[in-house]
Nucleic acid binder design. Structure first.
Length: 593
RNA sequence: GCUGAUGUAGCUCAGUCGGUUAGAGCACGAAACUCAUAAUUUCGGGGUCGGUGGUUCAAGUCCACCCAUCAGCACCA
């Protein structure tokens, strides 16, 4: 049965490059998952995009003296490159500064408003008369009322760590020009989460057995504590305007609007492929499964607030059939955090390994292999270069790469570059056993992948590679060939067929090298589809997005039917060993900044 | 501070409804082998299961408290 799988990933803030923590936590896992489902022949839609709005981007733009557009477009293009280099295969990776996203976000706002889940509230906020605008908390400085520290921010004192309200500050002043802000009344819109509290609790209380413990427990507790209304508008310029006259200076606040990207990107994808209704396959079919891959800091936004937003629309948008309901998240496999060399990643201290930098010096598959091996599925984990090199050399190269190399090399040299024939004696017990064991991997590895246990799935594939090594040592065709080349040929055939199976089992994790192996085995075609960047033109705006075309992909999650006599291509090692000295060099690079 | 998650061999992790001497992979030691990127295979050493109490015939597994790490409670999403 063909399943419909929607794979959503966190929207990276376009104010800096991606680092290994982003990759391991939010981008590689969904790619592995999506590739598996594509091999299964399932109907996969994987979407995300750059988050173009939000304070960090305007802060960076202000600091550089450029426009927010310039900042987010720069990093957006770099994201597109990184995802192509490491092979994160989005069907659509767009951004939130498109006409489509603005329209969808406004329509959702309007629907929530119409359904009575948005209310107004007037409050006092600091306003800069010199700049003619309201100031976000972070733009205000003053003296901390608790410790007397003079550089306290509007939201928090960096000296005594107290959480502050900006009106608490003594002698408040603007961070921009030092002028004294004045309190002024402003009206804001709030999402009425209180009204949705029961519905959210119901949603979280049923059919969540497959959720990771920390995700479901945390979310339930969050909802049980009682939800409060949250402001969803801001007095800023950079963002999506409200679809209401009389509020021209207000923008949708980014937390409300960014999660809508999952929906708007699906809509955009459908339009891009010329089937404007196609997105409904994933959003309105109750059998479709929707997955959200994010970091742990984002859990409540995806398990509570996004479902609440969907509920507030009445779970229906762009659809007239009253029997249809928008799908709420099926699973939110949030990851914990990745540390590095024992310390938390810190972008401000530059304690991070940036993806573009790493991909300049290392191949994508070893990076994928290591980052998946240490993925923070249930707790924080630690990236070390020593670990990277060791796992590359002692596991990836030694067990899997070497198996491929020894079998392909032997077959190519000793059997005239062809897959050897099965001898007249046929397959013996050992032959049948290893084939059956590895073919069982389609079930065991597949079950683990479907359950989003991606580390365990990779380990299971490695276990089967090891079993193949044991088989080979038992048969020792390099010895047997001396007095019975036909029998030895049978073993080589079996080994090649086993590798052909492992090629598919490893493909979600190691797509680039499995493609090479596919070719060495004499096959044509691409296991997966093609990634490309396309420029899309709307009425007034133009944006670049990353796309995926899987129509020509030949990879199938099925047992090998390798034919004797098939011509092999001249093999070469799939992976490189790394010098242990590299670890010290890499750490030296880091500490140099 | 409040809420939640996590804490099992050097590293990454399994440990189902509590039940025989706590498991796996890698690292480490020894042996075999040589087709292969000194890769492979076999065998072995290695843990008072964060701590302290408690329940029980029996606790890594249940309960209480404590400690450590992380996250949320912030106009950061």
């Amino acid at each position: 049965m063909t399943e419909k799988i929607l794979v959503c990933t966190a929207w990276p803030y376009a104010n800096g490059d991606l680092h290994i923590g982003h990759l391991a936590g939010a981008y590689l896992p969904p790619d592995i998952f999506a590739r598996y489902h594509r091999l299964r022949g399932n109907n996969v839609l994987m979407v995300s995009g750059s988050d173009s709005h939000g304070t960090p981007i305007t802060l960076k733009a202000d600091a550089e003296g450029v426009s927010p557009v310039e900042v987010f477009e720069r990093y957006h293009l770099r994201f597109l490159q990184t995802f192509q280099d490491i092979g994160v295969t989005y069907n659509l990776f767009t951004h939130t500064d498109t006409e489509n996203h603005a329209k969808v976000a406004q329509d959702i706002f309007a629907a929530c408003l119409e359904n009575g889940f948005i209310y107004n509230h007037t409050e006092q906020q600091f306003y800069s008369e010199t700049e003619g605008r309201f100031l976000p908390d972070r733009y205000i400085e003053g003296t901390c009322p608790k410790c007397g520290f003079d550089g306290a921010r509007g939201d928090q004192c960096d000296n005594c760590k107290s959480l502050l309200d900006p009106t608490d500050l003594i002698n408040p002043r603007s961070k921009n020009d030092g002028s004294t802000p004045v309190l002024r009344e402003t009206e804001h819109f709030y999402l009425d989460l209180q009204k949705l509290n029961e519905d959210v609790l119901d949603y979280l209380s049923t059919g969540k057995e497959h959720w990771r413990p920390n995700v479901i427990n945390f979310s339930l507790q969050y909802a049980k504590d009682g939800l409060k209304g949250r402001a969803i508008t801001r007095d800023i310029e950079w963002g999506i305007p409200l679809p209401l006259s009389g509020y021209e200076d207000k923008r949708l606040y980014v937390w409300f609007e960014a999660v809508i990207g999952y929906f708007s990107a699906s809509v955009e994808y459908a339009a891009n492929v010329g089937q404007p209704e196609l997105w409904k396959e994933w959003w309105y079919d109750p059998a479709a499964k929707t997955y959200y891959f994010i970091g742990k800091d984002n859990i409540p936004f995806h398990t509570v607030i996004w479902p609440a937003e969907l509920m507030a629309t009445g779970r229906r948008l762009y659809e007239t059939d009253p029997n249809k309901q928008l799908n709420l998240p099926y699973d939110v496999p949030a990851n914990e955090y990745l540390n590095m060399e024992g310390e938390k990643l810190s972008t401000s201290r530059n304690w991070a390994i940036w993806a573009p930098d790493l991909l300049e010096r290392y191949d994508p598959d070893p990076i994928r292999f290591y980052l998946n091996a240490i993925a923070p599925e249930s707790r924080d984990t630690d990236f070390t270069f020593e670990g990277f090199i060791r796992r590359n050399n002692d596991e990836l190269v030694a067990t899997w790469g070497n198996l491929v190399n020894r079998v392909l090399g032997f077959a190519y040299k000793r059997y005239n570059g062809k897959v050897p024939e099965i001898g007249p004696a046929g397959l013996d017990d050992a032959d049948r056993q290893i084939i059956a064991e590895v073919e069982a991997g389609f079930q065991s590895v597949g079950d683990l992948l479907a359950a989003v246990k991606l580390k365990a799935a990779q380990e299971e594939a490695m276990r089967l590679a090891k079993a193949a090594n044991v088989y080979l040592d038992g048969k020792a065709p390099w010895k047997a060939i001396k007095d019975d080349p036909v029998a030895a040929g049978t073993s080589v055939y079996v080994a090649l067929r086993v590798i052909d199976n492992l090629k598919i089992l490893f493909a979600p994790f190691l797509p680039h090298t499995c493609q090479k192996l596919h070719e060495y085995l004499g096959y044509d075609g691409q296991l997966f589809g093609r990634q490309y960047v396309e420029e899309f033109t709307e009425t007034e705006r133009v944006h670049k997005a990353l796309c995926y075309d899987g129509s020509l992909a030949v990879g199938r999650w099925e047992a090998s039917q390798l034919q004797p006599g098939q011509s092999l291509r001249k093999p070469a090692p799939l992976f490189k060993k790394l010098e242990p000295e590299l670890a010290a060099q890499e750490i030296a690079r880091l500490t140099q900044g």
